[in-house]
Simulated assay, not measured.
Amino acid sequence: MAKLALLAVIASLLGAVSCEFPVYAGYGFPRPNPNMPFAFPFPPFFSPASPAPGLRVGYYTHNGRCPQAEKIVRDAVEKATAGEKAGLIRLFFHDCFVQGCDGSVLLSGADTERTAFPNLSLRGFEVIDAAKAALETACPGVVSCADVVAFAGRDASYSLSSGRINYRVPAGRYDGKVSRAGDTFQNLPPPFGDLNLTTAMFAAKGLSQDDMVVLSGAHSIGRSDCSSFPDRLPPVANSSTAMEPKLAQQLTGTCSAGGSVNVLQDAITPDKLDIQYYTNVLSRNVLFNSDASLTTSTETEGLVEFYAGKRPLFRGKFLGPIQWNHDFEDAMVKMGYIGVKTSAEGEIRNTCAFINKP
Score class of each variant (00 low, 15 high):
Ile275Gln: 09
Ser220Pro: 01
Ser283Thr: 15
Cys101Ser: 11
Leu319Phe: 08
Phe229Met: 04
Arg349Glu: 02
Gly141Gln: 10
Asp75Lys: 10
Gly182Pro: 01
Val142Pro: 05
Gln323Val: 08
Lys334Ser: 07
Met36Asp: 11
Ser343Tyr: 03
Glu299Cys: 01
Asn238Trp: 04
Ser228Cys: 04
Asp210Ile: 07
Leu88Val: 11
Gln186Lys: 15
Gln249Lys: 10
Thr279Val: 12
Asp183Cys: 01
Thr61Lys: 10
Ala292His: 09
His326Ser: 11
Asp194Thr: 04
Ser343Met: 08
Glu126Ala: 15
Asn187Lys: 02
Ile355Pro: 10
Ala39Gly: 02
Glu20Gly: 14
Glu329Ser: 15
Leu55Arg: 09
Val149Lys: 01
Lys341Thr: 00
Gly83Pro: 03
Ala242Tyr: 12
Gln250Arg: 15
Arg65Phe: 06
Val213Ala: 08
His326Gln: 07
Thr351Gly: 01
Ala237Arg: 14
Ile322Pro: 00
Ser260Ile: 13
Gly217Ser: 06
Asp129Gly: 00
Ser227Ala: 14
Val98Lys: 07
Gly339Trp: 06
Phe229His: 07
Phe202Asn: 00
Ala130Ser: 15
Thr241Lys: 01
Ser293Ile: 03
Arg223Thr: 15
Gln323Met: 12
Ala131Ile: 08
Arg123Gln: 14
Leu197Gln: 11
Asn325Arg: 13
Val9Cys: 00
Pro51Asp: 08
Pro51Tyr: 07
Asn33Asp: 15
Val178Pro: 00
Cys255Val: 11
Pro321Gln: 10
Ala204Cys: 03
Phe45Tyr: 14
Met1Lys: 09
Gly206Trp: 04
Val9His: 02
Ala146Ser: 13
Gly109Phe: 10
Ala267Phe: 09
Val127Met: 04
Ala116Phe: 04
Lys341Trp: 03
Cys352Phe: 06
Pro34Phe: 11
Glu126Trp: 03
Arg114Lys: 15
His62Cys: 07
Met212Phe: 10
Ser216Glu: 08
Tyr24Trp: 13
Glu78Asn: 12
Pro312Val: 06
Arg164Tyr: 00
Ser297Ile: 05
Pro191Thr: 14
Arg311Lys: 15
Ser144Thr: 06
Arg315Thr: 06
Cys96His: 08
Leu14Asn: 10
Cys66Ile: 05
Ala5Ile: 13
Leu215Ser: 05
Val178Tyr: 07
Gly222Ile: 08
Arg315Cys: 05
Ala110Leu: 11
Arg180Trp: 05
Phe125Arg: 08
Gln250Met: 11
Met1Gly: 12
Arg223Asn: 12
Leu197Gly: 02
Ser293Leu: 03
Ala69Ile: 10
Arg74Val: 00
Glu301Leu: 13
Ala218Thr: 14
Leu106Gln: 03
Gly26Val: 13
Ala130Cys: 01
Val98Phe: 04
Thr81Pro: 09
Asp327Glu: 15
Val169Gln: 13
Glu301Gln: 15
Gly87Leu: 10
Tyr59Trp: 09
